[in-house]
Amino acid sequence: MDVTIKVNGRERTASVAAETTLLSLLRDSLDLPGAKLGCDVGDCGACTVLVDGMSVNACLMLAAQVQDRDVTTIEGLGDYDHLHPLQAVFEQESSFQCGFCAPGMIISAKALLDENPKPTEYEIREALSGNLCRCTGYTKIIEAIMDVSGQSASHADSKSA
């Protein structure tokens, strides 16, 4: 079947089998390998992308389900010379180590900040709980999101909310 989606602002069409996942459509047919395959069953969040502005696990959607919808992947956020503020702050604060979780993390963070520009630390933790990271312990990721939302990363209110 032919699937047409608007991805990162561009309309793209691919011919795929009905059982193709959104993740496979992006990675294998549209040359957008930014979203990663970490578990294939919704546990890790490495495949997180935005569909109509809402964060989803691309491994748990069929390509057919995004027909005519708007998809944003990490590749759509910024480029080498123009980083998205989240990308810039992740870079400045070394908020990743191996980087495998980073595309999904940044997309989840974007989904959070689009809805809630000044999240509390607890809200950030809650918003990222579907994105596993084995390397960083999440600390520098949380700090980066606090920073980019104009809040200094104080630990004072942590987790009590």
Binding site: M1, A18, E19, T21, S24, S29, L30, A64
Partner: peptide, 26 residues
């Protein structure tokens, strides 16, 4: 480029789904 040594010599590559074939109706 997404590949090691061949310059952009090929187009779309279907890695194959991890799901078995079915028909999709909406």
């Amino acid at each position: 480029p997404r590949f090691g040594m061949f310059p952009a010599a090929f187009g779309l590559f279907d890695r194959g789904s991890t799901l078995k074939p079915f028909e999709y109706l909406a």
